[in-house]
């Protein structure tokens, strides 16, 4: 086939445009989901947590979290009244298989499920040198794993220890608040699997969400409020010894 210089000059830009649209692909459509209508958060009711580890197992199954790494985990606090500031904290394998039986003694015990706080003013997204981690318009902090270099700056920046470098992908990985579920009207895997309702997904932009009534009537805290991260995981009846 003979192509003149003129034809080539016309064909090249056309091919470039076509190639660009191939590269862009078709985005996964989430019908009826409008990002600007939501502002996701989570409520954790400490007195309801029984430390069964269902959330940890559910998260690992749902999100292919590698063994030994956790997007959510459960800590068990043991606080004695003569040493309030130095609680004993255990989290064997993230609490995945539950906890050893505790004997009644002078101290108090409670469980604290942890996960990414999906901070509104997150330190982790601010330090990323390439724009690979960000907060979505609906308030979920996530990682663009195709763009992440794996420098781990965000892993160090997170005050809550919620990020890790994926052992095989070598990029940052973290809780996505089950974004693939919540955009389709489902709750997160951890909330779905929680037998006592200790974890509740909440949408702060939805005026009908029960979170609003709950926040009004309960003593609710976030973790490390002094860091002004704008954390959106709310803990009911959180003990002061929790770090």
């Amino acid at each position: 086939m003979n192509i003149t210089r003129r034809q080539l000059l016309i064909l090249l830009p056309a091919a470039a445009v076509a190639w660009e649209s191939v590269l862009a692909g078709t985005p996964e459509a989430a019908p009826n989901y409008n990002m600007t209508d939501h502002w996701w958060s989570m409520l954790i009711d400490i007195p309801k947590c029984i430390g069964c580890g269902n959330c940890v197992r559910a998260c690992q199954a749902e999100n292919d979290v590698p063994d030994g790494f956790f997007r959510t985990w459960v800590e068990r606090y043991h606080v004695t009244d003569w040493n309030l500031e130095n609680p004993q904290v255990i989290s064997p394998d993230g609490g995945k298989e539950g906890f050893p039986v505790a004997k009644e003694d002078a101290g108090k015990y409670f469980f604290v499920p942890k996960l990414c706080n999906h901070c509104a003013d997150s330190p982790c997204t601010q330090v990323c040198p390439v724009g690979a981690t960000f907060i979505t318009p609906d308030g979920v902090v996530m990682v663009d794993q195709k763009y992440c270099l794996g420098c781990a700056y965000c892993v160090q920046a997170c005050p809550y220890g919620c990020r890790y470098i994926h052992p095989t992908k070598k990029v940052a990985d973290k809780c996505t608040l089950c974004y693939h579920r919540i955009t389709k009207g489902l709750t997160t895997a951890c909330c779905e699997a929680c037998p006592t309702g200790a974890r509740q997904l909440a949408d702060l932009k939805n005026p009908k969400d029960p979170i609003h009534a709950f926040l009004k009537t309960h003593s609710v805290q976030v973790l490390k409020p002094q860091m002004a991260t704008g954390a959106k995981v709310f803990y009911n009846a959180l003990d002061g010894s929790v770090r």
Binding site: P27, M142, D144, Y179
Partner: peptide, 25 residues
């Protein structure tokens, strides 16, 4: 990338990619 800056200083298409993960529950 084409969608960089669509919503902020990041690749807008990444949101849809995360949302495309299959649900197990």
């Amino acid at each position: 990338p084409r969608t960089f800056g669509e919503y902020g200083h990041y690749r807008g298409a990444a949101i849809a990619e995360v949302a495309a993960h299959p649900a197990r529950f």
